[in-house]
Structures are given as structure tokens and as C-alpha cells.
Design a protein around this nucleic acid. Structure first.
Lengths: 103, 103
DNA sequence: TTGAATTACAGCGATATATCGATATATTTC
DNA sequence: GAAATATATCGATATATCGCTGTAATTCAA
């Protein structure tokens, strides 16, 4: 986990907002029946909600994934993104360790 | 405390390094006798250690102050900077609240 | 296999950030 | 008051990021 990548990824209000939205699947339209068992959200739904272009959101999700903050899973033509809780926790911990009060 | 400003300020390895250095006054040359009672570090010392230009460091410290991560105190021609532990803690907490796991 | 849908990638102009040297401001000292 | 010192600000240039359009790649459906 590179703190540098994570901080870059987080240094954008929309990307942070997406991470919040992903806390609850109900922030997005219901999944299609054929995707019932999957807990991620497809790019299109995120794009709709963020009101930015598809390519921008795709790039955003790539950044978040590269930083270890989300996990992507491809199913057919869809890519489902979900929070990487472990990665997020690790990042928060690393940041706390680096910035936190002197021993 | 604006999380946006804080994340921008932290999105730079040298600025994060400075915050770490400021954890311990001993990371810098000793204070002049006339500054004995002050617990900050002057810009010149930080500049020396970071090996960037004076103007760059001055701007960096301005950013860190604007983000509430350091406190500055002017004494004569010197400006002494020290960590704002409260501000740093508050920022870490806000970030945790925003990014942390869903309730 | 052709077409439609979903996502990713390339390239672009606009804006922001990094970092510098030069200069301005304030303070101390002579 | 002039010179020296510490810091802040300004202007310039290089690089990075933003968010777009357009297009390629992949997969499903007809």
C-alpha cells in the first residue's frame, strides 16, 4: 500500500464521494437479476450518480483501484467495483502512524 | 477544518516529511539562545533539511498552516513553525469518519 | 456476423501544482 | 539611516491533474 497513491486518489471530492456511496449498495439502482449475487456496483451506475462522463469515472475507478481503495471484478461486459475495506483501513492506519502524535 | 485543504497539503512527500521532522525538535539544529523558550522551528532550518529553495518551503509552510496542520508564531524576523497536534488529530478523525467502514 | 452495450484507453485543452529566482517586507544591528 | 538577515510574495516555467470527446476492446444478443 503506497500512501502516496492513496493520498492522490483521495485528493478529489468526487472520488471521496464515490467511496462513501459505495458504503451502501442502496445508494445505487438495484442490480439486474443476473447480477444478484454480486456486491459491487457497475461503472454506469456510478457515472449516473456522479454526473461526470463515463471515461472520467472509469479513470477515477482505475485510480482508486490502483491505490488499493476499491476492488474490481469483471463479469461479462460489466466491471463491478466495491470498497476494499481492508485497504482503506490499512491506509488510514498508515496515515495515522505517519502523521500521528510523536511517540 | 477543511478536509480538502488538508488532503491537498498532505499530497506531497516533502510536506509530509516536514510534519514528521517537526515531531522532534532534535531533528533540527539547536535554537539560538534568544529563542530558547520557543518550541517551533524556523523556516531556514526546515529549508536546510529539505534542500529546497527558501521560497518553496515558505509556501509549503503556508499551505500546512492553511490546512490547520501546523501553527506559526512570529518572533521578530523569525517565524517558528510547530505541529498543530489538535488539528492533525482532528483531520485524522474526520478522514476516518468519512472513509471508515459503513456504520 | 453484425450490432448494441459496457468499459477502457488515447489524446486534448484548461486549470492546478511544483519549484525556482528575483524582489518586497519586516526586523535587527551598526 | 544603511546594511544585513529572515521570511513572504511575485512571476515564470515545467509538470501533473481534470474532465472532455472520440475510439478501441470485449462481450452479449439477434
Amino acid at each position: 500500500m503506497e500512501i502516496d497513491k492513496a493520498l492522490s486518489a483521495l485528493n478529489n471530492p468526487v472520488r471521496r464521494q464515490i467511496l462513501e456511496w459505495l458504503k451502501d449498495r442502496d445508494n445505487f439502482p438495484p442490480a439486474l437479476p443476473e447480477h444478484a449475487g454480486l456486491d459491487g456496483v457497475c461503472v454506469g451506475y456510478i457515472q449516473e450518480k456522479a454526473k461526470l462522463s463515463q471515461s472520467t469515472i472509469s479513470a477515477y475507478m482505475g485510480l482508486l483501484r490502483g491505490a488499493g481503495l476499491v476492488i474490481s471484478e469483471r463479469h461479462g461486459q460489466w466491471t463491478f467495483y466495491r470498497r476494499n475495506e481492508t485497504g482503506i483501513q490499512e491506509m488510514l492506519k498508515n496515515l495515522s502512524n505517519e502523521l500521528g502524535p510523536p511517540c
